[in-house]
Design a protein around this nucleic acid. Structure first.
Lengths: 227, 227, 227, 227
DNA sequence: GATGAATGAGTCTTCATTCAT
DNA sequence: TATGAATGAAGACTCATTCAT
């Protein structure tokens, strides 16, 4: 009636491990994202990723065959879908182009710039020299698609006569820069420093949009004046 | 005891055939700067620094007790003087504020953005998380003084009625961003990727200045700085 | 309980669509043989063996409690039967001894030297130091029986006055060596190198037989086996 | 008078390490040779090599940048000079070719076959498949030069009318095989097994030389009959 | 029986730092 | 001072073996 002899070996057993095939990738990617953002690529140890996800190092390699693959998976699962969702959202909008542009910047900030994902951008910029393959990947999967998104908005505005026909390529770089740099900054230098010359994000965004529309919209330099 | 310790690191030094103890730190810092820019902080090996400076690794430790100290010294000696030289140059100008602003951006680019020093900015941004002390130092000694320089130009323009009185703090961030990000980019992602969406620096600067003056100058939004 | 455990590994098996428990060991051993030959003992991964046999790694452990046991089983099932088949074939021949000797070498080459099994010989030689039990087994079950086979042919020739009565033990080693080494060589160094000093197998065999008969046959040293 | 305060930290100090730049390579190579021979290439751990040489793992890498380089150095320092010494010795001999040939085999055995170096040959053969670069290296630096040495002796004998003009390429393989295989055998299977069918090396060599000269020398099949 | 997810010790290699000379 | 040989603690990745399902 008491313990089955088999049973005596594992009394009150907390199983040595659990089988969680479905949940693992998400857990691993989450842990990896956190650590990549916190420490950068090179300084993130896969031991730590595994530990944070609550598995052994070997398990990590069961799902992602190398550190590089893990990183790419993080980007692919977290940032790439974001861009695609942006694209869908904007595709079906019929708002005036100026409003659309504002929406793009606001979404970009709230879904990327203000989240840990911005830390990935910092990482790529900081370690591109030592891991060029990551940089290429990021450029291809994130930077270029994002730039094309912005370009498509501007081109729509030009086509519909809402925007002036200026140097779009330069504009894209110019207009993304404040967003990107601020996002990076908040994940690198800002956390270390007293926020001396910091401008609240709202004022920052407003000024930015004013500036962009000042260049794009034919007459009125300020926000949203119906064209 | 005679020599001020600060002085031992100066760049302009007596004929090299008399290679004295005092010249060493400068040579070491030069080698370290090159390698830190090229590889980043963590990936720079002290072996290589020593080899490039033509000394042994042990000697390096005679002058700088750790990698971190070496790095701090590099930043102190290479970027800080640059900012001060900017300040002096611009202080004695009496040009119209719009021209002055253009001059500031152009100088910033030629003396910093287009030089290896931009690599230091990339490095700081990328490794701030693992090296916060450096980030603080950089913010204090480089970022803030630079911002104040730009602010003083804009304030002069406002005072003299040349510029509109807008949100200067936001403007400073907004207007530095394209410069800084482009400088960083050229030292990180660009070298790894086919230059797909690249815009030549001239077009980039022109568009940038147009945009800035479009916001600042009361009426003429376009290329109005009739040089 | 009905089936003899030896039997479970036989190669010729009932239609494969009825894949029963008894067929498993044979499939496992086949896969293991392939991989051991291809990669050697230490470098063969049990993952790969399982995958090639179309089962899971766990199943492998159901049949063979360790890699070592699997390996022993492979040798037992693949090479030992071969030697026995040699013995039977040659026992019932009544050809002249010189012809018989030639037949032995040719058969040895076609049934062993030119097949993947030669890879096992290479493996045993290469990994005997780390796997002495295997070496003993191989010596006992393969090397010695094979030597006795050759010895019996030579002794027959001597008995029948066809061969001179020379140092048979030395002869056996001497005459097997070129065959064995060539067989090993083709599975180790040759595949890696441009075939610089290679001689076609026919010329090699002819020269070998000439040499052996030159020593054994009283007068005619050359290609005398007028087949 | 008592201890200098500096000194208290290292009383009766056995120095943490010693500086032995000159002696190191030899010690490392010696340790590596022993272990490579004993365990094979893949199974030799660099930790163990370092430990046997009495240094840390890091020190090993100071002298040899990788396991592969270490291995090549072992071969280069131990086997290659041997071949060159063979070549010199034989170049200046004016003995009859038959005697020279005997000398070559005897030397080959005493300087290589009977020494730990033969273990290297075993290793290369056994692990060529997994480390093809090593096999190529060995083929180039050892196998081919050795074969050319033997070839040059035979060609000399032919030129001087001492030897018949037979298939030299096949002969070289044929005549090296017993030497090589026996050398390998003594480092792999033999140490594991009761020496059942072993023939003493003298009888083996005599029989071998008889056989070779039986093919090469026009009339008299036995050793050294003054031509 | 069968599976395959999970483990963790083991292996090569790197590099900041120390210290005998 | 100057040297550079020596150290040892990591870190990415592998794989035989275990065990929950």
């Amino acid at each position: 009636m008491a313990a089955d002899p088999q049973d005596t070996t594992r009394r009150a057993r907390p199983p040595r491990w659990e089988r969680r095939k479905e949940a693992r990738p998400g857990e691993l990617l989450g842990a990896a994202l956190d650590l990549f953002v916190e420490k950068g690529y090179a300084a993130t140890r896969l031991d730590d990723v595994a530990a944070r996800a609550g598995v052994s190092k070997g398990t990590l390699y069961l799902y992602y065959p190398s550190k590089e693959d893990l990183f790419k998976a993080v980007v692919r699962e977290s940032i790439v879908p974001l861009i695609e969702s942006f694209k869908r959202d904007l595709a079906q909008s019929s708002a005036p182009s100026a409003a659309l542009l504002g929406e793009f910047f606001r979404q970009w900030w709230s879904c990327f710039g203000a989240t840990p994902l911005a830390g990935i951008a910092k990482l790529v910029v900081g370690e591109a020299g030592n891991f060029p393959e990551l940089a290429r990947f990021f450029q291809l999967e994130v930077v270029i698609p994002n730039a094309q998104l912005l370009r498509s908005i501007v081109e729509r505005g030009v086509r519909q006569g809402e925007f002036r026909d200026i140097d779009i390529d330069a504009g894209i770089q110019l207009w993304m820069s404040p967003m990107v740099l601020r996002a990076i900054w908040e994940h690198s230098i800002l956390p270390c420093c007293p926020p001396e010359l910091d401008v609240p994000i709202d004022r920052f965004m407003t000024a930015h949009l004013d500036s962009v529309l000042g260049v794009l919209v034919p007459r009125a330099p300020a926000t949203g004046s119906g064209a």
